[in-house]
Design a protein around this nucleic acid. Sequence first.
RNA 1: CGGGGCGUGGCGCAGUCCGGUAGCGCGCGCGGUUUGGGUCCGCGAGGUCCUCGGUUCAAAUCCGGGCGCCCCGACCA
Length: 480
Amino acid sequence: MAEQAVTAQSEDFSRWYNEIVYRADLAAPSPVRGCVIIKPYGYEIWEGIKAGLDRRFKATGHQNAYFPLFIPESYIRREAEHVEGFSPELAVVTHAGGKELEEPLVVRPTSETVIGEAFSDWIQSYRDLPLLINQWANVVRWELRTRPFLRTAEFLWQEGHTAHATHDEAEAETRQMLDIYAEFAEEDAAIPVIKGEKSRMERFAGALRTYTIEAMMRDKRALQSGTSHNLGQNFAKAFDIDYLSENNAQEYCWTTSWGLSTRMVGAVVMTHGDDKGLRLPPKLAPYQVVIVPIIRRDAQASAVMETVERLRAELAAAGIRVHVDRREGQSPGFKFNDWEMRGVPVRLEIGPKDVENDNAVLARRDIPGRAGKQFVPQARISDTVRELLADIQRSLLDEARAFRDEHIVDVAGYAQLQEVIEAGDWARAAWAGGDAHEQNIKDETGATIRCFPFEQPDQVGNCIVTGNSADKVALFAKAY
RNA sequence: CGGGGCGUGGCGCAGUCCGGUAGCGCGCGCGGUUUGGGUCCGCGAGGUCCUCGGUUCAAAUCCGGGCGCCCCGACCA
């Protein structure tokens, strides 16, 4: 048996990641540095993410719209912190139509500015509020070091932009959207996340407060998987987003923005994947079930295929995404390994013996080897599969949560934090330090404050660097 | 931007030191064989050897210029 599997995760995680992204057909290299081609199998995962989020956005009163890819350069400059945060990574169009443009156009790194400009026109009175808009779009940030899905020069995402009459309403919106991200991550992607607030240093350029969901990958590094910003009145003031209140007074709006990107595809890969490849959560898997026919040329091939087709139709009718692997050149063993690498949650084998006995072999991807294999009756196959899929969805989340919780350590002092970070774990520590302290920790350990979790202990204790009494704990980790 | 490396069929590489027929594995096509955990055999298609110039009877190979990419250090969904 020629073992031509991917590099083991345990051996070299980042190599494993790169290999699996290409081998599982999620993406392909692109001619442009820092960009990737998202292939159909990877794109379908993204479509699953889109569907899960879009449904939740609509359910909370948001509408989709689309704003231009190009932003006049002057817009970007209007919000002081925003320019500073984004200028190093902007791609700028200076020529078009064979001529130099009068004003260069920035390829959007995010759309607060153009959308803010539009909002200032759309909003006249308090009756126009709240304004709840989302767009699905591509954005460009000229990053130096890129990795497929995790950080690419161009990526796909959704960015929500809303305007409200009061700070509290904007804050409620910001938190609501973070909750939606967390719910989506756990329920659909089976990724447990920690909700919290970003430190001043990690805050979005131009925001009052930034909230985040942080997830732990299988190499124990943190991945910021979605963010929600309360922009205060910063953009409202820069773009004149104001309204006439009930008292006939001109007031600035309070705005928010929130985004989740194709990085989530990377999160799915790195949260659930194992040495054999991907393990996709059933709710996002392009194929939830793959049927592998076991056919002997000389024997009852047609009987096997008849059974396969009957079961396929039954599963499809039950709303299960099912695919029959009809490839003729490959042996069943090859197909088993191939689909395992590609993370299909359930494999259904049908061979001559199964036709004879009216049963089928079901193998679940999350439990490798014989332990995950069972003989089941063909009768009521869709119920059996549906239950199995639900169980896989649940156990992937449970497994990921147990793994994460095992690797978060409460630390009492800086020395212990260093040890914990050195070991690759996350450290939870009382914090009352400033930017300089935070920067220092980053320089010395490589870890950053991922967030101040919403969930705080009853007793916080003294800050691990200043020794002063602290009112909150922070979560430290090395991050992507 | 600083340090290291690499450009040779679709992918991964050898060949370069020592100039002389462009090769291997995977993949791809065809035929057969096999199929319940990565079958095997045969035949075949596919390459301006990154680029421009120089040396030479002769350059993937030697010399010079350019371009591109990858890896490691400061920013980021």
